[in-house]
Design a protein around this nucleic acid. Structure first.
Lengths: 226, 226
DNA sequence: ACCTGAACACCGTTCAAGT
DNA sequence: ACCTGAACACCGTTCAAGT
């Protein structure tokens, strides 16, 4: 009777792309972006470092695959909801992606570094279908869908960077924002008047709400188009 | 009479933060993101690798500083224009940043990896001032300015990633897009209907124009707000 | 105060050799 | 066909030692 514990003791199944991707996900979630190493991954899989190269071309390939696995699941889960209007569906998709990046910050940076690859294509497809539903004329569907996707990925990347910075600094989000707000307040009053006046907003803002407001802004811009 | 050639022969001035930053910029422009190495940088400055650490805390510090130098110059040059309307000024700033990233792709990824740092603050300030001019109510200035900045940085990061990918693949932009378009056309017809129909757009689109259309969408969303 | 350069503790990737 | 693990060619960073 084979043991069911897949811990780093000994391998029971053969290696496979899927097994590697799953191990990479848990490794990334556990030790962060810098924790994903071919050596550490090989350890977790109870194999040699070079073995991975039989299934994965190079580290970027792995990163994209791992990102795609999360995005695919996220979109699948979000698609099931079936919101009332295209507008609401776009919002639901955007929020789901935001939550996924919040839970796995490394997805944000992977997404930023692999434009046009499969994870991106999935986003474009899901968003694009709703853009069609919105009645956007065919000639502008491309640019509208791209704007939404670019915005989503852009914010996601920023949040990922924030999370990674806070992690390696060992700081909580609140402390991180508070110290940044202080830095802003110490800026030159003439040159950085606007930024200084936004220091409180920085400290008290809600990432999620702001992100969705941005989505709404773009959607409203679309609706006004003629 | 001292020689005026600052080539990698021998150093004449003392090292300084500015000299290091300038050398890093030319190195990045010449050899790309992966070309910026403390060893290569030390060579270019005719010094030892460790000397740089007297002036720069760590590589991320250098990257942010180098990014900020470009952004500061870009915004200064763009600010001089003095466009007629706030809308036009936002467009001008956005375009200037786009061009800067196009000329120095590494600025795009540096920008993505340093949220809240000085380069970001500069963008926020310049955009925010125009958001005020647009008459956006105080309560929503924060989220509006952030949306614009996030979008700009997001698109910039994507373009940087594209440029870097094309560089290391040794491919031109056109060939890169053409092969990606073919990949899209080979996707499953049911699952990726929208994406397939956009393959031609991918191949023929204009990055700059699409980017500005996105800015316009957001600005129009703001105008419609009430 | 500032610089030098060897040394340390890592990386991704390759590849002969095994099964 | 698939795996092993040592070896290669790098990294960022540190630090005793120099000036």
């Amino acid at each position: 009777m084979p043991r069911k514990n897949p811990s780093p003791d000994k391998r029971e199944d053969a290696l496979s792309r899927e097994r590697i991707i799953e191990a990479a996900i848990t490794l990334l979630d556990t030790s962060g972006e810098s924790g994903l190493t071919f050596r550490a991954l090989a350890d977790a899989l109870a194999t040699g470092a070079g073995a991975i190269y039989w299934h994965i071309a190079h580290k970027n390939d792995l990163l994209t695959a791992v990102c795609d696995a999360v995005i695919a699941r996220t979109l699948q889960a979000a698609g099931g909801a079936g919101a009332a209007t295209p507008h609401a569906t776009v919002r639901a998709i955007a929020l789901a992606v935001f939550e996924a990046i919040d839970a796995h910050p490394w997805v944000g940076s992977a997404l930023t570094q692999a434009p046009g690859q499969l994870p991106h294509v999935r986003l474009l497809e899901h968003i694009g279908q709703q853009v069609r539903q919105l009645g956007v004329p065919e000639a502008t569907q491309w640019v509208v869908a791209c704007t939404l996707v670019n915005y989503m990925v852009g914010v996601g990347g920023q949040n990922a960077a924030n999370a990674q910075f806070a992690r390696q600094e060992g700081i909580e989000r609140d402390g991180f924002l508070a110290s940044m707000a202080n830095t802003w307040l110490a800026l030159d009053a003439d040159e950085f008047g606007f930024t200084r006046s936004m220091a409180t907003c920085l400290r008290t803002h809600d990432d999620r709400a702001d992100f969705l407001t941005g989505i709404d802004l773009i959607l409203r811009g679309i609706a006004t188009e003629d």
